[in-house]
Amino acid sequence: MTTSRGSKAVVQTTEAITGTQPVRRRARLRGWERAVGPVSLLAGAIAWEAIGQALDVSVFPPLSAVLGRLGELLADGTILGYLATSVTNLAIGFAVALVFGLTLGVLMGVYRRVEMALDIYVRAMLTAPSLVFAPIFFTLFGLDRITIVGVIVLYSTFIIVLNTAEAVKTAPRSLVEMARCYGAGDRFVLRRVILPSATPLIMAGVRLGAGRAVKGMINGEMFVAVVGLGGVVMTAGRNFDAETVLAVMTLIIVLAFMVVWLVERLDRRLTAWLPETNRA
């Protein structure tokens, strides 16, 4: 499924998690090379500002205008209510996805027949564009929070299911055998061998699930068009207010990075035993 703990945030590769493959040699970066990333970001920001100033059209406001707008929105507090709604939706949806995803994933990983029965459907749901379910939820629940939460759950559950199932299934047989050799029962094997060894890959799924949950939240809210940050984006879009659209998008990106960062911290705590070289 997924593959190395990507350097920054999002990307994961299995080889580095299981650590079975030789650790890729990372050439040491010279000092100035380390600076290339930030410099490139800075250059992008300057270019944005300059082009925005030069064009002077409402659809492409300069960076300063966007940040100014974001400051205003935060200062006068209008955005905070929407932010709170969005974050609440996200928290509920992601929590439900976690419970669902982990349970189903462990079941599929442990019981071969459950996996055989459900794997294609889980894969189908993973590849399906989840937002198509939004109109269905909307007909059922209208503007209720459940509509958004439902979209978030659909966005984030299935990647967690698949990674968890895969992780549980691929727990090292030699360790399971070792435990059996000392007379361990199923519960001991699951609790002390399978789940710990599955944790890195499970957390990779959880991290992807978190990123997807944020997308589900925004996309769902944009579909419903009147609640949360997504609603603000839609309203601003209708009013041709690009400054607000970009300001809110900036906020959403910060939110997304924060969520991923939180999951990453949790991941590091749960998998502190992984050798540092396997994180790269």
């Binding site: 350097s7 920054k8 945030a9 999002v10 990307v11 990333g37 930030p38 490139s40 970001l41 992008g44 659809v59 990123g211 944020v214 997308k215 939240m217 925004i218 996309n219 944009m222 997504g230 984006v233 839609m234 601003a236 879009g237 209708r238 690009a242 659209v245 970009l246 809110v248 998008m249 959403i252 990106i253 997304a256 990075f257 991923v260």
Partner: peptide, 18 residues
């Protein structure tokens, strides 16, 4: 890379109104 990282976590639907 920094731009890719941003693109990876950004809910891209946000660019639709723009």
């Amino acid at each position: 890379n920094p731009y890719l990282n941003i693109l990876l976590v950004t809910p891209l639907a946000g660019i639709i109104p723009l």
